[in-house]
Simulated assay, not measured.
Amino acid sequence: MKHPLPAQPRHIAVLRLSALGDVCNLVPTVRALQRQWPEARITWIIGKAEHSLLAGLSGVEFIVYDKASGFAGMRRLWRELSDTHFDVLLHMQQALRASVLSLGFKTGVRIGYDKARAKDAQHWFTHYQLAPHPRAHVLESFLDFARLLGVEDFTLEWNLPVPAEAIEEAAALTGDTPYLLISPCANPRLRNFRNWSAEGYAAVIEHAWTQYGLKTVLSGGGSTQEREMGERIVALSHAEAVIDAIGSTTLKGLLALIGRARAVIAPDSGPVHMANAMGTPVVGLFATTNPDRAAPYRWRDYVVNRYPDAVRTYLHREPDEIHWGQRVRHADAMTLIRIEDVIGQLDALLTRPNGRKQEDETDEA
């Protein structure tokens, strides 16, 4: 039997395991829930890497599920929570693995996406579905969960914790030098064609150095693809203009680097959303994914958007003729982004009257 939605939930479960950008976009929903019900417990079931980024988030209890642990890890998690009853479960992960995981949690109210947004038959695993919200940004889709529960204040708030050791880690790399941060590579997954060219990045680095006296910090993970990209960019750039930090920072250290940067440039990947969360100006590079759905939310006006061109060129359709959020899986799509596009948006950010987003600015989603 389906239970009614709780008017004042005492214990809320949030199920979102991945990815780094998505969990950053989810934090304003958690903050909205906290403002509405400050006494409620919030337990977030989250992935391992994502937890390392958000660890210490105020007012949130984290339960970590390592996807590599498979079904055995699910059983361990179910045993750990066997005596816990949630007033409501917000099922925010559109994946069959997460839906199976959700079955082991004790709750009479499971909220998931509406059929148009759900994937992997998620609506079969939930009691309530969100109201339709066509063409919603990912951040807005998360806020829809709070909206269904009756939350009214949707002021965007993050306040991500950055520990002292992370700040020290960032300072050790950059000192007091003002810098631009470039994270050149998205997650190296199959047919994930989101990366721009080393030549393009080198040209932007040269512009930042000669026009603004800004060094560029290169960031990223330790994969072969990322290291090779970093090496190509460094080889094409003046040595004094680049600090290569690829593969040498923790996620908290990267968050600190992003927080101290004058601006960030990256493709559709975790760092653009980390910058958005930290209030750091960011130029997102988008051609294979739709920025209307996935751009850094507060900096959408500064996105380099070649997605419509990519849809027309490689899918031979108009953007309004395809499924919302459909990706352009073509290796050449990012070549549609021009160097002058990126430099133009960077100039627009760096010459803004306030320079950075002010701490007291708020947004209504």
Rank of each mutant, 00 (worst) to 15 (best):
H3W: 08
H3A: 15
P4Y: 09
L5A: 03
H11V: 07
I12V: 14
I12S: 03
L17C: 01
A19C: 11
V23S: 00
C24H: 07
N25Q: 15
L26C: 14
A32W: 00
A32F: 00
W37V: 09
E39K: 11
A40P: 06
I42N: 04
T43V: 11
T43Y: 06
G47Q: 01
K48R: 14
A49C: 09
E50H: 08
S52R: 12
S58I: 03
D66G: 05
A68W: 02
S69M: 11
F71S: 12
A72E: 15
R76N: 11
R79N: 12
S82W: 07
F86Q: 11
L89C: 13
L90K: 03
A95M: 08
V100I: 15
S102Q: 04
S102Y: 02
F105M: 14
K106C: 12
V109A: 03
R110S: 07
D114K: 05
D114T: 06
A118H: 05
A131M: 12
P132C: 07
P132D: 10
P132V: 04
P132H: 06
H133G: 07
H133M: 13
A136V: 06
A136L: 06
L139R: 04
F142G: 01
F142L: 10
D144A: 15
A146L: 03
E152K: 12
F154T: 00
V162C: 14
V162M: 08
E165P: 08
E169N: 12
S183T: 13
C185I: 08
A186W: 03
F193G: 00
Y201R: 01
A203D: 05
A203I: 02
E206P: 03
T210H: 14
Y212M: 10
L218F: 00
G222W: 03
S223K: 04
Q225P: 00
Q225W: 06
Q225F: 07
G230H: 00
E231Y: 01
A239I: 10
D244V: 05
A245W: 04
L251C: 04
K252C: 01
A256R: 03
V272F: 04
A277V: 03
M278Q: 13
G284A: 05
L285C: 04
T288M: 11
T289I: 05
N290D: 15
P291D: 09
D292V: 10
R293I: 10
A294M: 10
Y297G: 01
Y302K: 10
V304A: 13
N305Q: 09
D309S: 11
V311Q: 05
V311A: 08
L315D: 09
L315V: 09
L315I: 10
R317K: 14
Q326Y: 09
Q326R: 13
R327P: 01
V328D: 07
R329L: 15
M334A: 06
R338W: 10
I339L: 15
E340L: 11
Q345D: 03
L346G: 03
L346Y: 02
D347E: 15
T351A: 06
T351G: 03
R352D: 15
P353C: 10
G355Q: 09
K357S: 14
E361P: 08
E361T: 13
D363P: 00
